[in-house]
Nucleic acid binder design. Structure first.
Lengths: 134, 134
DNA sequence: CTGAATCCCACTAGATACTG
DNA sequence: CAGTATCTAGTGGGATTCAG
C-alpha cells in the first residue's frame, strides 16, 4: 500500500487512524506476513523462506526481509561459514504483533463466507454491463 | 498492496497466513481505514467523508467506498431526494473488524518509539560504509 | 547460499473535467 | 450533491541476470 507518500493522512480527527495506518503500512505488502509467521516459528534461513513462503521471488524476499529488519521486526544473523549462512528470527515486538494479527485472522475466518457472499451479491447486482474483473 | 496478482500465496503451510493476508488486502489501501473509522462512528455522507478523511480525492473516495461496499463492510443508502443524498455506514462485521484493528493500534503505540529507533539504527549502520548508492 | 542490479508491467492514486 | 471519465505518475512486485 502507499506510494512514496511520506505524509500520512495524519491529522484526521481521530489519532488512532494514523496509527493503524502506520502499522498496516509496516505489515502490508504481499509477503511481510508470510515471512513474519515463518520467523515467528523460529530462526529460518533465506532459502527456507524462499521455499516456505512459496510464490515469493528472490527479489521480494530480500526486499521484504530488509524492511522487516529495518523496522526491528526481524533479527538478521550472518554466520561467516564457508557456504554463507544467514538466519532470520522474529523479535519479541514482532511476536506481539503476530498475536494481534491473530485477532484479524479470527475476524477473517468468522466472516469469510459473509464477505464472499457480499461480493457475489454486489457483483451480480453490478456486473450487468461491467466487464468482469475479479 | 498487491498488484494484478489474483493468485494468493494461499497454500502456504499455515492456513492463517492466507487469511490474514486476505484481511489485510481488504483493509489496506491508503484510505480504507480512515473511511471505515468514519463510517463506524455513524452514517456519513459522501461530502462529509470527503471533508473528514481530508487529503482524499473524490476519485479515491469513490473507489474505496465501492470496494468496502462490495466486501460487505459498508452499507450504501441512497435517498432519492431532490439534492441526491447518499449515506454510508459500517456493518456489524466492519465494526468487529474495527475492534480488531484497535489491537494493532495498541501494538503500534506501544512500539512506535522502538520502531523509530530500529530504523534510525539500521539506516545509520548502512548509510555509513555504503558507497555509491543510497 | 545469499543477495544485488536491471527491466518491465500492473495497479494505486492524484489531478482535472464533466454530469444527473 | 454525488459521482464518473480520462490521463498521468509513482511504486510494488515478477522475472531474470550477475556477484560475493
Amino acid at each position: 500500500m502507499s506510494q512514496g507518500n511520506t505524509d500520512v493522512p495524519a491529522e484526521a480527527h481521530t489519532p488512532q487512524v494514523c496509527t493503524v495506518y502506520d502499522v498496516l503500512n509496516r505489515v502490508s505488502g504481499k509477503w511481510s506476513i508470510g515471512i513474519l509467521v515463518e520467523a515467528t516459528h523460529g530462526p529460518v534461513r533465506f532459502t527456507e523462506l524462499e521455499r516456505n513462503v512459496k510464490g515469493i521471488s528472490r527479489r521480494m524476499l530480500t526486499l521484504t526481509l530488509r524492511n522487516l529488519e529495518r523496522d526491528g521486526l526481524l533479527i538478521r544473523t550472518v554466520y561467516p561459514t564457508v557456504p554463507p549462512r544467514v538466519e532470520y528470527v522474529a523479535t519479541d515486538m514482532a511476536r506481539e504483533l503476530y498475536r494481534s494479527l491473530l485477532e484479524l485472522t479470527g475476524w477473517a475466518e468468522r466472516h469469510r463466507a459473509a464477505i464472499a457472499a457480499a461480493r457475489e451479491a454486489y457483483d451480480r447486482a453490478n456486473d450487468h454491463g461491467e466487464p468482469g474483473r475479479a
